[in-house]
Write a protein that binds this DNA or RNA. Structure first.
Lengths: 254, 254
DNA sequence: GATCATAGTCGTCTTCCTGACGATAAACAG
DNA sequence: CTGTTTATCGTCAGGAAGACGACTATGATC
């Protein structure tokens, strides 16, 4: 190396893998599909697939997402239309032994989506489901009554998932990205429960309310109220134009 | 798609590109090499090259870095020995048209290094040099007496460089990574000039001194003093064990 | 209908951090 | 010796955040 000789380069397969996160029943959940073939047949894996010949990486990720969930994702540059989810590139994994069949370089992407109905299984997956990330990553916490034993994810997908979760946890600190987990209209309490689920901590409702309503551009009132959470009616908000929070939300000490 | 069929995948070339940053003469500079062949012959580009068949992505980046600069980089997981620089994966660029010859997916890496002597030109590059990022990115600022007209970088390297610079700018806010720009022993003033060069702002020496010396684990005194910056002798420090700064350094308003 | 549980919202107080900036200390240049 | 440069310590006011009390407006229960 490295005479830049295009005629003699080692060929790689390039795939995209998706870390699709949502908040369901007060828990951070990831989308996983059951593998229908070897290797790791029958094991859970992150959704993904090959990048096509004339396809950009982000486009491939958005296509795979649509195939698996029907979601219309938009990257930050793209104008935000419809009920799209947030999509961003996460990292690239290229260990020579990560796929026993051949050399595969996978460009992982992170998707943050509001709570959805059951995912539709599509493509090569026998089935798809939402699973709490704690169970998938084999944390210490209680999945005593979870219906799925914590079989490890296929390939290096546990590492990819862990990286995606950590990205989400840190990114909602200094950006308004937590609203990507919420429906178009939401209450301060619902947004707080998103933070609590993603961080796995309890937050003071009064300080949280003061913080988010006092940050300019974070939330804009939509006029209505709702009692879907019970208790006193809560004001409804939409995500404001601000994307960066300054000063940031502070994650409580460990 | 996407039956995961290894026998029928579109082949890609996978490369690593390097954004190597350092601080020289109070300016943030990047390592660029002059291209010796088509396309973009004679233009400046980021150093990089093909990933080998049995080589991990980070290893390929470290190898290319050593070939270009002689630097021994270590990724965060690796134990930090010697005069190594900081290396981390930045992002992956895979636009189908980014290289006119063929489909190339490039995994860009970010390297932060202390000020070095002139880079040694190696590999396929006719020559290598440090260039201020402002000139490379065609900023508004004064490069009136720069010896190089701001010819745009080859391929999409201007975008990659801009992403790397932005990563460095934000990362020194909440991590101790600014010390990667410093020699093993440095003064508070030298560290402050790193921040000033990377951010392009002036910082109050008194508040900066209070902040960095008051953050536990950021700096540990090494015992000696130096007057290499002129003026009153300054205490010498080494980087402490802390990697995350909490609370972070605050970048002044724009 | 009274009571209770639940969630939302507004305030207060203390503590910590930061930005602005005065003042002193220790070197070198003339 | 005097001015210049850089380093370092201190003070003060303003803002943000954690802890927590108090009040409000619903639905559920008796």
């Amino acid at each position: 190396m490295s005479p830049y000789d295009p005629s003699a380069f080692p060929p790689f397969a390039v795939t995209v893998d998706l870390v699709v996160l949502t908040v369901r029943r007060h828990a951070l959940c990831a989308l996983v599909v059951r593998r229908g073939e070897q290797p790791y047949q029958g094991r859970w894996a992150l959704p993904g697939g090959f990048v096509r010949s004339e396809e950009d990486l982000g486009a491939a990720a958005a296509r795979e997402l649509a195939e698996e969930t029907g979601l219309c994702a938009h990257e930050p540059g793209t104008p935000s239309i419809g009920n799209g989810a947030h999509l961003e590139q996460l990292a690239t994994y290229g260990d020579p032994k990560r796929d026993p069949r051949m050399r595969v370089v996978s460009v992982a992407h992170l998707v943050l989506a509001p709570d959805l109905p059951a995912p539709r299984a599509g493509g090569d997956a026998h089935s798809a489901r939402w699973a709490p990330v704690e169970a998938l990553l084999g944390q210490e916490d209680d999945y005593s009554r979870e219906d799925e034993p914590p079989a490890p994810l296929a390939f290096d997908h546990a590492q990819i998932l862990a990286d995606g979760v950590e990205r989400a946890r840190s990114k909602i600190e200094y950006s308004s990205l937590a609203t990507a987990f919420c429906p178009p209209e939401f209450t301060v309490g619902e947004l707080r429960r998103v933070y609590e689920a993603v961080w796995g901590v309890a937050l003071d409702p009064r300080n949280f309310h003061r913080k988010v309503t006092g940050t300019p551009g974070f939330l804009v009132p939509s006029g209505g109220t709702t009692t879907r959470q019970g208790g006193r009616p809560a004001q409804l908000f939409r995500a404001g134009g601000a994307t960066l929070l300054n000063p940031p939300m502070l994650r409580p000490e460990v």
